[in-house]
Design a binder for these strands. Structure first.
Lengths: 194, 194, 194, 194
DNA sequence: GATGAATGAGAATTCATTCAT
DNA sequence: AATGAATGAATTCTCATTCAT
C-alpha cells in the first residue's frame, strides 16, 4: 500500500468505503467478501489492497466513518434550545435504525472485532456515541438548558444502554416495537433529567 | 428396545460443552472450529456429532446452559427481603463477569448468531436475562418489597442495558472500572425504584 | 463374519435384508447408511457386520433376492394359455413399479455397482429379467402358444429395453404416463409376436 | 466496465471439462472428487469454482457437451437419402461407445443424478437421444424417405431402449458382442419401419 | 495504477467400519 | 452374540490474499 497521489487515494478509498457500507448493510461484516466489495465498487479485487491493507483495516475505516456521522447527530444538541425534544428525536432515529437487523448485526460485529483487536478498539473510542452524548449532556447542563438528576456520564450510559437493548428487543420480540421503545424512552428520560 | 445410555450421553455432552467453553473463551464462537473442540475434549471429531447435531446446536446448548445460570441468579431475588441489596450484588457479579473480554465477546457473538439465525435466537429467548429480571421485579413490586418508579419492563430494560454498556466500557476504557460501574449502578437504581 | 448357527444366520440376514429394502426404497442405495439399516432392522450397527461382510455385499444380497421375485413373475408365463395378455399384465406391473423414482434409482444404482464391481455383476446375471423373459418366450414359442416374429432373445431385449426407457420417461416427462406406456407396449408387442 | 475474458473462460472450462472427462471415465461421476479433477487439470482446487459453480453444474456441463455430440449425429439423418443404412451406422457407433464400461457407468450415474436432482434432469432433457431420434424419424417419414410401422415416438423409444439394453449386455455377457447387437438391431429395425 | 486469475489453507459434516465391553 | 461408541479419512466449497501482466 504505497500512497503517492493523495487525491486519488482519497477518492478511491471513499469509493471503496461506500461500496463496503452497502455490502455490510446487506450481509453483515463477516459475510461480506472482498470480492463483493470490489464488485459493488466496480473496481478490481486486487486494487482494493492498494488502498486498504486488508479486510480488517477496511472495516476499521468503515467504523471510523460511521462514528463521525453519529458525532454529527449528537452535535446538533449543542445548540438546541429544547434539548429534550431534540434528544428524543435523535434517539428515535437511532433506535429506528439500529432495530433493523442488518444495522444491529454490523454494530455488534464491529463491537466484537473491536474488543478482540485493540486497533479497532482505539477507533471505537469506547463506544463513540456514549462519549458524544455525555459531552452534549454536560454542555446542556452547564448552559442550564437541562437539569441532570444523575451525572452526565451515567445518563449517557443509561441512555445508550437503553437504545441498544430496546433495538435488540425490537428485532427479537415480535410484541415489542419501535413505537413502544420511543414511549419507554420518554419515561426513561424523565428519571434522568428535568 | 433402544437403550439410550443417558448417563454416557450426559457425561459426553458435558465434556464437549466444557471443552467448547474453553475454546470459545480462547478464540470466540466463530473462530473456534469443531476440530479445536474435539482436540480439547480429547475426543474424535466425528464423535462430537453423535452428541450435537452441528456446530450451531452446540453453541445453542452452550448458551442455554449459560442462561440457566443467569436465571438461577435472578431467581434468588424472589425470596429476598432486601431486594435492592441483593440485586446490587447480583448485578455486580454480572458486570464483573461480562467485563471480561472473552465473556463479552461470546455474549455478543451469540447475539449476532441469534439475530441472523432464528434458531439460536429462540434460545436466547430474547435476552433471557431481561425477562428474568422483569419477572423478579414484578413479583417484588406485588409483594411490596420494592416500589417501582417506572414499569417493571422498562426498569429491566434499563438495568440490563446499563450492565452491558458498563461492561463494554470496563473493557474498552482503561479509566473505567468495575468498581465505578457498581457505584453508578446504585445511582441508576435510585432513579428506578424505592 | 463367522457363520455357526445357520438358523440364526438366516433369520438375521432376512431381517437385515428386509430393513435394507425399506431403506433403499426410501433413499436409494447410496444414500442409505448402515446406521439407517440397523435402526430399521432394530438391530445394533455392529451386528450387521456379523451377517454381511460390508455394505457392498449386503447390496449384492439384496439384488439377488430382488431378482428372484422377478424370476417368479416371469415364471407365471410358462403355464399361461393366453400368454400375450398375461405378459401385458406383467409388463404393466413392471413399468408401474419401475416408474417410481425410488425403484428406478435403485435399479440404476445397482446396475452401476454391478458394472463396476464384477461380483455384483455375476449376480445381476446380466440383467436377470431379460434372461427370464427370453426363456419364457422360448417355451411359449415351442408350445405354439405364441408365434415369434423375431428371435426370443431379441424380443426379450426389445421388451426389457422398452420397459426401462418407458419407465424413465414416466418419471422425467410429465406428458408421458404409465397409461400411455401400456398402450405403446401393446403396439410394440404386435411387432414382435402374433 | 466489466471485462469478462471470454476466451480464457472458454479455454479453462474446456480444460476442466476435459480433465473431468478423464476422471469420470476412470472412476465414475460419483467417485471422482473435485480435487481429482483439479489435479488432472493441473489447476488449483479453488480455481475450478471460478469456472463452475459446483460439482453438479460441472457434471451438467459435461453431459450437455455429450448430448450435443449425440444431437449432431442424429442430425445427419435429416438429409440422408438412405435413412435406414445411416441409422444403422449411427446406432452401431452408439452401441460401440456405450458398451464400454466407463461410458455406460457415466451414462447411468448421470441418469440417477438426473432422477434425484431436477437440475441435472432438465439437461438430460428426458434422454435427449430419444427426442432427437424421434424428430429425425418424423421428418424422414414426412419426406417419404421411410415408412413407419409404429409411431415415431414409439419407434424412438424402442430403438433407444434396445441400444441401452444391448450395450449393457455387451458389457455383462461375455457371449454377447457389439457385432451381434448390430445384427439384432437390423432385425429390430425391420419390425419398425420399411 | 489496475486487473482479475490463481492459490490453497481451512471449515463443517458424513459414514463405513472397528472393537472394547 | 450383540452392542453402539468411537474413529478419522474423505468431501465439497469458501475466501483473503498474492502476483504476473
Amino acid at each position: 500500500m504505497k500512497k503517492i497521489n493523495t487525491q486519488l487515494v482519497a477518492k478511491q478509498q471513499g469509493r471503496i468505503l461506500l461500496a463496503a457500507k452497502n455490502c455490510f448493510f446487506k450481509n453483515g461484516l463477516t459475510k461480506t467478501t472482498m470480492r463483493d466489495i470490489a464488485t459493488e465498487a466496480d473496481i478490481s479485487l486486487g486494487n482494493i489492497y492498494r488502498y486498504f491493507e486488508n479486510k480488517n483495516s477496511l472495516i476499521r475505516a468503515f467504523i471510523e466513518k460511521d462514528n463521525q456521522e453519529i458525532d454529527r447527530a449528537f452535535a446538533l444538541l449543542d445548540d438546541a434550545n429544547n434539548f429534550k425534544t431534540l434528544l428524543e428525536y435523535i434517539i428515535k432515529e437511532f433506535i429506528s435504525e439500529l432495530s433493523r437487523k442488518a444495522e444491529m448485526c454490523i454494530y455488534l460485529e464491529a463491537l466484537v472485532l473491536g474488543l478482540r483487536d485493540g486497533d479497532v478498539l482505539s477507533l471505537l473510542k469506547l463506544d463513540n456515541s456514549e462519549q458524544s452524548l455525555k459531552t452534549s449532556l454536560q454542555k446542556a447542563s452547564k448552559d442550564k438548558r437541562i437539569e441532570l438528576i444523575v451525572s452526565a456520564e451515567l445518563a449517557a450510559l443509561i441512555i445508550m444502554g437503553f437504545v441498544e437493548k430496546a433495538a435488540v428487543k425490537c428485532i427479537a420480540d415480535p410484541k415489542y416495537s419501535v413505537r413502544k421503545a420511543n414511549k419507554q424512552f420518554k419515561q426513561c428520560l424523565k428519571t434522568l433529567l428535568r
